Amino acid sequence: MFAPRALLTLVVAGLLVSARAARAGELYSYVDDDGVMHFSNAPTDARYRKLGKKATAGGVYRATAQARALPLPRAGAQDRYVEHIRAAAAKYRIPEALLLAVMAVESNFDHRAVSEKGAVGLMQLMPGTAKDMYVADAYEPAQNIEGGARYLRILANMYDGDLVRTLAAYNAGPDAVRRAGGEVPDIPETREYVRKVVALYEAYKAGR
């Protein structure tokens, strides 16, 4: 997902913050002249201000104008899946808004969607990932959503609740993040993917 942790425009309130991260202490942030929000638990710049308890792990995310202006899918596209989304979000402690954002970018809420690489369904699960997440039928909405939420939870735990790396790994795979030294792989598709998901996540949280 993005250059050396290069990208997150807004504090991701309450998102995927692991217990360990929460115990690590308070987080601080500031927005520089370029509109980039910086995070740290050991502030070294006078511009840092303490965040509330609901904050994301460290990192910087610069959303492009395209990502910030990204329109939401047509109204009501996700309505038929609300029950499944709520159940999966509660079970795996993933914000409903995040599941909606991932689904919107992955498949635009089309449970029949199939990518050129063979990813299937609402959360675009690859066959191997679907199997690992105990998804017997990736075209079946409830199974696909639960499988995607389960995978997001596993990745969130792997990266100590860091949203940027979690989404990068969801898109490009944990191996790609590892090869990038634990940072966002230098893959344009992955960088833009994370930008879009974060922008939509913020929009869904705001009720837009």
Rank of each mutant, 00 (worst) to 15 (best):
V36Q: 12
G128C: 00
Q143F: 03
L100D: 08
L98A: 04
Q124M: 12
L100Y: 11
A77S: 15
G181I: 04
Y151T: 05
R165M: 15
P43E: 08
Y204S: 03
L167W: 02
F109A: 05
Y81V: 05
D110M: 07
A97M: 10
G121K: 08
E192I: 03
E140W: 14
A21Q: 13
A104W: 04
L16C: 04
P185Q: 01
G52A: 10
M158F: 01
R150E: 00
T9G: 14
G14E: 12
L70T: 13
A130Q: 05
F109L: 09
A57W: 05
N108H: 10
L125F: 01
D160K: 00
T166E: 00
T64V: 07
G14S: 09
P73Y: 02
Y81R: 08
A6D: 07
A206T: 05
V82C: 04
P4R: 09
A203T: 15
Q78W: 06
V197G: 02
P141V: 03
P141H: 09
R153Y: 00
V36E: 12
L27H: 13
V12L: 14
E140I: 08
D45E: 11
G181Y: 06
Q124I: 04
A55K: 11
Y193V: 00
G148L: 00
G118S: 08
F109N: 11
G173I: 00
S107N: 08
T56G: 05
Y170M: 00
G25C: 04
L51V: 02
P4C: 02
G121C: 07
G58V: 06
Y30N: 10
A67K: 09
R112P: 07
M37T: 13
L167C: 09
V164E: 01
H111F: 09
D33E: 13
G161C: 12
L27R: 15
H84S: 15
Y61R: 10
A206F: 05
V60F: 13
D160C: 01
R62M: 08
A63I: 11
M123E: 05
D186F: 11
D160W: 01
M126S: 01
R23A: 14
P188T: 05
V177E: 03
Y170D: 00
A90W: 02
